[in-house]
Nucleic acid binder design. Structure first.
Lengths: 135, 135
DNA sequence: ACAATCATGGACTGTATTGTCCATTATCAC
DNA sequence: GTGATAATGGACAATACAGTCCATGATTGT
């Protein structure tokens, strides 16, 4: 079935929306946002780690700690989040699943999908985390 | 990770492309198309059954039998195949995974995604099985 | 009628995704 | 330093998806 991104990515986005909309001084705790978003905490923690790896989140351990965004919510796009969580190449594979499909040897769907994908990615890259709050 | 449709649907599409491009009098056998497409036969058979259920394929049992398309390849769209295999509602669920997201109570991504999806579905519905052969 | 050849469908196995648990490390407050 | 509180990360469990196997039913040709 169709999916724009993984379940983990969905949790990351929902957590970030919740985090930004209620963070005190830009800091938030995994436990809080997961509880209030109604998403599984242990699993979401794993996912948030990819955002730390990707440099989008900063860890602040110890009491009063949590996570902090390394950028303003208006400078973090949906596409960046998706790629950090699901992998840089998540949108790259051939739609038909052909192993040797590329520009030179395109599958029947290649051109149509290349155009649709470009448009979709441009959209995803134009929507920031801040946009998700006010929309 | 991102997927336009399920693995099974991918197999169905590849099988149909192979079938139409080499069918004698519009009839083809599961074994043949799966072998030549390099896709798993037993699994693809299951998937083709959904196309029979959906009325897109007709079964012809016995020697010399196989499947037949109930329509011309130019009258069967990609969207119809996808929906028959992955379910009518495969594109309907909320992108953010919110259970109560709809027109009245839209999630932050709702509007943006509704537009993108409409465009994508229109594309998928404009591409016929015949198009997939000549593209 | 009989044998060969189709698809069908139920049970089963394998694998990837999703989800949980717990010991560990780092930091802060006292 | 000690204890409480953060995230981290490894091992593990549950579920969904993908794939296989085999007995069955329907049809055709002889």
């Amino acid at each position: 079935m169709f999916r724009l991104y993984s379940k983990g990515c969905e949790y990351a986005i929902r957590a970030l929306i919740c985090a930004v909309s209620s963070a005190r001084e830009g800091r938030f705790r995994a436990r809080d946002v997961c509880e209030r978003s109604g998403i599984p905490e242990a699993y979401t923690r794993k996912v948030l780690q990819s955002l730390v790896q990707g440099g989008f989140l900063k860890t602040v351990p110890g009491p009063g700690g949590g996570y902090e965004l390394t950028r303003s919510p208006s400078a973090l796009t949906l596409l960046e989040i998706i790629r950090a969580v699901d992998g840089e190449d998540t949108f790259d594979s051939c739609v038909l699943g052909l192993p040797n499909c590329d520009q030179g040897n395109p599958c029947p769907l290649h051109r149509m999908w290349a155009e649709e994908k470009a448009r979709l990615l441009a959209q995803l890259d134009s929507i920031t985390l801040k946009d998700l709050l006010t929309l």
